[in-house]
């Protein structure tokens, strides 16, 4: 499994956005690293709790895979594509504030292998 390694550079723009809430970056092995956008983390406020998806499990597009909580408000995140979650970020599960501090770096959420290769690019907004 190729390791995911981002430098902690919170001001670096994401490769692509999926709506206002998520960004993704394609890895050489065809998987995608998914994270929360700067805009979404600001709207959420200071995150205190995060429960991520189950590594190794296959989900359907739009299925809720993660939840987060800030200031007593719970939000949910859906998977943007049919696929298998191959890795989650243990750092954000023990310290959800990492998502606020470095949403495009160490605050990434999970890595997914889409059921159909390349499908994630369809209908997303490229910025990188």
């Amino acid at each position: 499994m190729a390791p995911v390694s981002f430098p902690p550079s919170g001001d670096r723009p994401p490769a692509c956005r999926i709506g206002p809430d998520l960004w993704y970056r394609r890895e050489p092995d065809g998987t995608y690293v998914i994270g929360l956008t700067e805009e979404a983390q600001r709207r959420a406020g200071r995150l205190a709790q995060y429960r991520g998806p189950e590594p190794g499990r296959t989900y359907l597009r739009d299925e809720t895979v993660a939840s987060m909580e800030s200031e007593k408000w719970v939000g949910h995140l859906a998977l943007p594509v049919d696929g298998t979650v191959v890795e989650t970020n243990p750092v954000v599960e023990t310290d959800p504030g990492t998502i606020n501090r470095d949403p495009y770096g160490t605050g990434w959420l999970y890595r997914v292998r889409p059921r159909t290769p390349g499908l994630l690019e369809a209908g997303t907004e490229g910025t990188g």
């Binding site: 709207r43 959420a44 406020g45 800030s70 200031e71 007593k72 408000w73 939000g75």
Partner: peptide
């Protein structure tokens, strides 16, 4: 309302 803590 956008949802989120601001709505509280």
């Amino acid at each position: 309302g956008a949802g989120g803590p601001g709505d509280l």
